[in-house]
């Protein structure tokens, strides 16, 4: 490492070794910490802002925290007598245990849950996989891409045992695609 320069910017001294996959073989690339950070999606520093998706959510959070004290006693009691029409869970029980009774409770207590979810997760809307999402592994061509991505990651993280396993899987899949090219047409794009 002594005196070695960053292989990317060729200016700063190299401090980080990154294993990369180049044409099927592992290469070591020495970088300075700035270049390493820029190139790796896994070393991004996390800012507190990222915990909240939008500024409006931060606002809503503050709002809900400030208003908590102001809620009138009468309204709260009213609230607590509500029940889920499907499972009969009283809102009071949820407040006591933090456990819901069934999936319909989310609809029945939506307003209360929105506040609680915001407080706990810093968000009120789901993003991520949904019942229409297809895993990459369903279509052979997408699966191949996915495997190659995982292989790259495994190499970068120096997990050579996994890399060997993925390489075998890629070889098998490639052979399979060559035998049955008709089955490998890309599936229709999922709604995003």
């Amino acid at each position: 490492m002594d005196g070695k320069l960053c292989m990317i910017c060729k200016k700063a001294p190299a401090t980080v070794k990154v294993s990369k996959l180049v044409k099927g073989t592992v290469r070591e690339v020495w970088m300075c910490s700035r270049c390493a950070e820029k190139r790796s999606r896994y070393h991004k520093p996390i800012t507190p802002q990222q915990l909240f998706k939008t500024a409006s959510e931060v606002e809503a959070l503050l709002h809900s925290l400030l208003n908590k004290e102001g809620e009138s006693g009468a309204r709260r009691t009213d609230d607590e007598d509500r029940q889920c029409p499907t499972c009969g869970l009283p809102l009071r029980t949820y407040r006591d245990t933090l456990f819901l009774g069934c999936s319909d409770c989310y609809e029945a207590f939506g307003d209360v849950l929105t506040r609680d979810l915001l407080r706990y997760h810093g968000a009120t809307f789901h993003c991520g996989r949904h019942p229409m999402s297809q895993p990459e592994t369903v279509n052979p061509v997408l699966k191949l891409k996915d495997l190659q991505r995982r292989l790259e990651l495994a190499v970068r993280r120096e997990d050579f045992e996994l890399a060997a396993r993925l390489r075998d899987e890629i070889k098998r899949l490639k052979a399979q695609i060559q035998e049955n090219p008709s089955e490998s047409a890309p599936a229709k794009k999922e709604p995003s």
Partner: peptide, 19 residues
């Protein structure tokens, strides 16, 4: 599987709601 477009996958405890 129980899912809502807004809250995502619906779980027994709100600490797991979403993904």
């Amino acid at each position: 599987f129980a899912f809502s477009a807004r809250f995502g996958y619906l779980t027994s405890c709100t600490t797991n709601t979403g993904t």
